[in-house]
Amino acid sequence: MIALNAQGRGTGGAFTAARIIFGGWFLFSGVEYFTPFDLQPLGNTPLAQEFTLALIHSGLFAWIKVMEVVAALLILANRAVLPAALACVPLNIVIGYWNFVLDPGVVEYAFGIVTLVLNAILLWPWRQELIGLLRW
């Protein structure tokens, strides 16, 4: 069971672990793009490489990485976790698509699943409020 803080939000072990792992992962992924180390994977398939290079060459990838850094810092600081985790949903949909469709493989499937599950854990404490967004 997730422990709750004064606002009734998750602070338990799974939430805290997801917050630290997800935040650290996104912080590393975002920051490393702006370093000279060139650790950004382009993918193993021509389609994955073409997609990633199109994002890089269009300049959109830099904005994505800035979003990852900002969201990661908020999540790691345990401040504005809901809007930060919500901002990561579209990023994670693209990450999942890249891992499951454009560049499939065992490691890619694992990364795709883990990032989606961690994002879901971060949103879980607000599920009652979020479900209201799905009502017509």
Rank of each mutant, 00 (worst) to 15 (best):
I2D: 13
I2G: 09
I2Q: 12
A3W: 09
L4D: 08
L4T: 11
L4C: 09
L4K: 13
N5R: 04
N5F: 06
A6C: 10
Q7I: 11
Q7A: 15
G10L: 05
T11F: 11
T11H: 11
G12P: 01
A18Q: 03
A18S: 08
R19Y: 10
I20M: 11
I20S: 06
I21N: 00
I21K: 01
F22T: 14
G23M: 00
F26S: 02
L27T: 00
F28V: 06
F28Q: 04
V31K: 05
E32N: 13
E32K: 13
Y33R: 01
F34W: 01
T35V: 10
P36S: 14
D38C: 11
L39S: 13
L39A: 15
Q40T: 15
P41Q: 12
L42V: 07
G43Y: 08
N44L: 04
N44R: 04
N44K: 06
T45M: 02
P46C: 13
A48L: 13
Q49H: 13
E50I: 08
F51V: 07
L53D: 09
L55M: 15
L55V: 12
H57G: 08
H57R: 11
V66E: 05
V66Q: 06
M67K: 03
E68Q: 14
E68H: 09
E68L: 06
E68I: 06
E68Y: 11
V69S: 09
L73C: 05
L74H: 12
L74F: 15
L74T: 12
I75M: 11
L76V: 04
N78H: 15
R79G: 02
A80L: 15
A80Y: 14
L82W: 06
P83S: 08
L86F: 01
A87T: 12
C88R: 06
V89R: 05
V89P: 03
V89E: 04
P90F: 10
P90G: 09
L91N: 01
L91C: 01
N92W: 10
V94I: 12
V94G: 09
I95L: 10
W98D: 04
F100D: 07
V101W: 14
L102W: 00
L102S: 00
P104W: 03
P104A: 05
G105D: 05
V106G: 03
V107T: 12
A110W: 08
F111H: 14
I113R: 03
V114T: 05
V114I: 10
L116M: 04
V117C: 00
L118H: 02
L118D: 03
N119G: 13
N119P: 09
N119T: 15
A120D: 03
A120Q: 07
I121R: 02
I121K: 00
I121V: 06
L122T: 01
L123A: 07
L123N: 05
W124K: 08
R127T: 13
R127M: 15
E129F: 14
E129T: 15
E129G: 14
L130K: 02
L130V: 06
I131M: 15
I131R: 15
L134Y: 12
L134M: 14
L134N: 09
L134K: 07
R135F: 09
